[in-house]
Structures are given as C-alpha cells and as structure tokens.
Design a protein around this nucleic acid. Structure first.
Lengths: 164, 164
DNA sequence: TCACCGTGTTTGCAATTGCAAGCAGCGGGA
DNA sequence: TCCCGCTGCTTGCAATTGCAAACACGGTGA
C-alpha cells in the first residue's frame, strides 16, 4: 500500500521510453540518473523525487507536467490555471505591480477561504452566481492603488521585453 | 550539493504562508507534514520531495504548478501568460473578486504603459530583479479591498461580518 | 568454446528525507 | 510568580532515496 500511484507513473515512463525506442540505460544517461534506479522506478519499486521526475521528463523530451499528472502530483485538471504564475510571467507589469496583484489575490483567497470555512459549518449550499449589480471599481479605489502601482520607487522600471 | 533553487522555494512557501496569515504549524497540519520539517523546508535546509511539495501546495491552497515552477521543477514553458484568463478560470475566487482583480490588472497595464512611454526616452538599463523588499501591502490598503472581496453574496451581506 | 556487447535486474551502502520529541522565546491570564 | 498556549527551531533516529558494483540473460563474431 505504500506507493499507490507510483506504479502508474513507472508504467508511463516505461511506455514513453519504449515508444521512443531507447534503452533503459540511454534514458538513464539522458536523465542523469543511474540505470538501476530508473529500472526500479519503472517497476514501481521506488518513488522518485520531483527532481528526478523532472530530469526523466527532460530525458524523455516530454512535458514535466504530463509526468506530474501521471504521478498524481498535479491534480489532473488543475483549473486554477494559476493566477500567480500568470502574474509572475506577465512582462507588462512592473515588479511592484506584480507584488501588489499577488498580494491582493492572496488576500482574496484568504477571505474566500475564511468564508468557506465558516459556511462549512452550516453546510449551506453556496451560490456562486450572484446578481452583479454594481460597478466593480469606484474611482477612489483605483486612486488608492496608484501609489503602489507603477511607482518605480527607485526608478525600477523593469523592462524585460517580451513582445506579445 | 548546492541545491540552488531550494532556497527560493522555501522563501516562496514562507511568503505564501505568511500572506495567508497562518502559522507554520497550521500549514504543516494542513499539508500533512511535520512542523519541524516544514520549518527546514522554508529555510532551505531540506529539499522536499514532489509529494510533500504537492501537499504543501494544497495546504496553501495554491497551484501545485506554481510551486513546481518556483522549485524549478517545471520548465515554466507554457505559463498561461494571460493573467485575465487565469483569473477568469480560477474557481477559488468569487465573481466579484475576479472583477476587482481584472480591473486592477487593467489599471496597472495602463499605468505601466504610460510609464514606459515616458522612460523610453531614457531607456534605462534593466535593474536586476531585486526590488528592495518592503512590506507589500499596508493594512489600510487591504482594508480598502475588503468590501470588494468576498462580500455581497446574493444581496444580503451582513450575516456575521464582524462589525466592530 | 570463449570473449564481447547489449539488454534489464539485484545487491549493499552512504546520504538524505521526514518525523517524534524536546527546546527556547513571547504574550496573556490567574 | 507560575502556568498555559502559541510561535518557530534543534535534535536524534527510522525509513527511504539514489548510486556503484555486480549479476543474469541473450545475441554476435572468432
């Protein structure tokens, strides 16, 4: 019972490897792991760490994500689609703007969580769709944001270019 | 071994945890790991396995992918790169929170653009990513957000909102 | 027959993970 | 003052990872 999903990922790796028509040792070399260890992984005898998994994915030239999903390390459909990552990757923002956005996002998550916990006691059916009946952002609210937005406190203008 | 990026992921976890305003032990319990181990992870003394990483992500209610990217375990190859899309897809937010985030994002984009036009004359060389850290969000700023965050589900809000 | 090269597998073992228990500091109440 | 609860940190220690070396088996050529 020790390693429930490891077997499946081992099989998956072996499948991928065989489809690529490379030997265990070749993949081991490409991935930078030892052949015996790879053998054990493929047979589900070992639970590789994330680092090893990542290297194997590289060796197989497949997506790390695919492997993690197989390993059960990422919820297969991870719908959050990751606002944080998107913010971090967005080159159209300054570093400070990113920080603010992330903080706001986190605070939202926190509030939502607090609410969820609260409602979980009552086990109340929760409606997501609310009648949207109000302007989301009044002027003064955005005004309050400005000092945090582009600011460039010490001329930190951050221009990594990524034309997109 | 240097474990180059472990430190950064530890910091990232600690940031996320503190922003969520939960204690190390709370997160440890939520993630199903021991407190001392989490402490060591946060300080970069240990390299958590993928499984632990995944559990921590769950405990933090953040995307596993974000954590893996931070850990350098995913090549960050195809990030959503679209903040709006990510926000829209995030089921952990209320509809109102999404609206607010999107509006803030838009306003940031505008400000940044204005700045870039201004600074394009100077073409300042990039300052490496080290914006002098400073507490990200003052209290009153977050307080200003609250009315827009989770509130107003279905018209009637004041169920138990702590009214001082 | 032997030697050689390839495949995947088994076998110890150092290094590391991850945990239970305990330690030190801080703030509040009796 | 003591006690309690909370915060994070340190300390052994069992369990596990991941590797080097050696193993078993098969195919090839001399």
């Amino acid at each position: 019972m020790a390693l429930p999903k490891v077997g499946s990922i081992g099989e998956y790796i072996r499948e991928q490897r065989q489809q690529a028509k490379i030997s265990l040792r070749q993949l081991a070399a490409a991935a930078g792991v030892s052949n015996p260890y790879l053998s054990q992984i493929e047979r589900g005898l070992r639970k590789p760490s994330a680092e090893i998994l990542n290297q194997i994915a590289k060796g197989l030239r497949i997506s790390s994500q695919a492997l993690y999903v197989q390993a059960g390390l990422i919820e297969d459909r991870e719908p959050p689609s990751d606002v944080i990552t998107a913010i971090r990757a967005d080159s159209h923002l300054t570093e400070r703007q990113r920080q603010v956005l992330i903080d706001i996002y986190d605070s939202f998550r926190k509030e939502k969580r607090a609410e969820d916990e609260q409602t979980s006691q009552n086990a109340r059916p929760q409606r997501d769709s609310e009648p949207d009946d109000e302007q989301p952002l009044p002027e003064d609210f955005l005004a309050a944001l400005e000092p945090y937005a582009a600011t460039s406190r010490n001329g930190n203008v951050n221009q990594e270019t990524k034309e997109g």
